[in-house]
Write a protein that binds this DNA or RNA. Sequence first.
DNA 1: TTGAAAGCGGTACCAG
DNA 2: CTGGTACCGCTTTCAA
Lengths: 349, 349
Amino acid sequence: MNRKATALDVAKRAGVSRSAVSLVLNGRGDGNVAKESQDRIRQAAEELNYSPNAIALSLRNQRSRVIGILADEVVVSPFDGNIIGGADDVARSRGFVTVVMDTERDTARDESAIETLLDRQVDGLMYVTVGLKPIDVPHGMLRVPSVLANCYDNHAQPQLHHVIPDEVTGGREATEHLLELGHRDIALLGGSEDSPAAPLRVQGYRDAHAAAGAPVREDRIFMAGWDIDAGYRGTMKLLDGVSPADRPTAVMCANDRLAVGVALAAARLGLSVPEDLSIMGYDDETRIADTMVPSLTTMALPLREIGRAAMTKLLDAIEGTDTGKGTTAATMVPCQLVVRESTGPAPTR
Amino acid sequence: MNRKATALDVAKRAGVSRSAVSLVLNGRGDGNVAKESQDRIRQAAEELNYSPNAIALSLRNQRSRVIGILADEVVVSPFDGNIIGGADDVARSRGFVTVVMDTERDTARDESAIETLLDRQVDGLMYVTVGLKPIDVPHGMLRVPSVLANCYDNHAQPQLHHVIPDEVTGGREATEHLLELGHRDIALLGGSEDSPAAPLRVQGYRDAHAAAGAPVREDRIFMAGWDIDAGYRGTMKLLDGVSPADRPTAVMCANDRLAVGVALAAARLGLSVPEDLSIMGYDDETRIADTMVPSLTTMALPLREIGRAAMTKLLDAIEGTDTGKGTTAATMVPCQLVVRESTGPAPTR
DNA sequence: TTGAAAGCGGTACCAG
DNA sequence: CTGGTACCGCTTTCAA
């Protein structure tokens, strides 16, 4: 627990002044410090295992090279973690460090968390949410460069750039996959209206049908919720006791957990997947979609990419690399179809 | 993006010196500063929305009131997030802030992450892992007070206190629950040997049998893995084509995802849960165990409590509240049985 | 009761 | 090429 070496320690050991140490270790030794001293300094630093005190640096430079990330729910979610992972990748590669504060869904803590971060001189701020959602941008976020990831400003005049997945296209491409397999009666378990992602995915579902000239049956669309039991119950309602001719041949789900419920219900009803029924997930949730039996065809959310894009935008703004002021206030990142085993050709009847 | 007010700003506005501001705002105004000045100072601070610069404070006090948390995989896991949540609770309540760095399973990044944290003057360090596991304690952790959560020191002479779940008791109590329901033929899907948790839970399973005088059938124990497909395939091997008299009446799983696989397989085989087969999970994974159909009886990992206990231990050490040096080097936190719908009385035959 | 000054660990400027 | 010095924002000691 002994204290770390300081620049002064290094200077003493090398027999020079602190300023020399600073110059050399920051690569501006040539032309300012004698070659010989440079070597001694570098060696001394090595021996003492010296690295500059980031706190002192921050105070001096008025910038900390720290990006504060405010998450609403990383902590219990397998989802937005990937956003943070992607953001962290980019930050590290550009010499920044991220610190994460999680409010565990208590938005009342937003402001004070931001204040804490601001007191620590963060150079920028990023707000991350688990699901796509509108937020009230905490006041303090306007005081430093900031960006929103997977969420967007609730206000009429958005002040911050946001990066979100392209849910409409995602919903459309998922549906197209099913249509291409010959399905013409595709049920939709659509999540619930409390998430803005749900209606967007439904929109994609409609768009795909329209483009294919396939009629949409409104009675096939259920806003059921997001969990396994909702998928199970929805499927039971849809299929139990229904004659094969009247059954949808595919179910598209607003997330993978719903799809698990659908598969469970199908199994109880003695239906084979995908022979009798194709199941399409959404999210590509790790350890769920890839390990289901059969494994789930799903629309992967580009979480990592969202994090990367948001952080890139943010750092560009901080470092003044940002090219245009007039660039769009939003970035849409495409989702990615992952074809596995739970979807197949529509059964002939 | 205007700069924050400093103590000097407050002093000017109140017409006093910086020292006075410092004294008053730190509660040591009485006896040192005139009542009248005190009021003016407090008012000025309020008006300027002043809060001290944490960076400067850290530099001055040589302590930052920041706890660094190194996580091996929060980011993609729904699990150890709760440990961090619990730890953060405790830290905040005691006036500390936590900053999380995630290495995404790349232990090569451990040392440098710790170094980064140390450069930022963290007052203490906590290492958190997703699953129970032995680790090589990064060198730097010995330089400040540190604690291990959900993991433990690989070395012969452990230097750090660790907080882990009591897996043996967890495995035993889960088994006891089944035994009490009358089950005498309980299969075990035990995860895999690469996790130290697996053999401990198996040990609990054996202990419970021994205590109940029930023989253990070795051919009922499978080290299958941890995912849905492993649970599915294990169950198929166990039950498919086996006459009812030769079937186990319950399956105990090393985690909830295995249990999902078991339920799926049972459904395909036309078996009812829990009437024909009881299923016991482990972990109490959010949104899985509680929303399965039927919902899973499971052994909840005390993740939040682990985080709380570890942080408490750490802060006690930092603040010198720690009572005894000779206290145990480890804390075991009990797991908690959560009874839901997937377990029931053993079928009579 | 108040204000001036030192120092935490750096960096950067400037005179020598 | 070198070392002294000011300053980042704050706390604390000490002298007035």
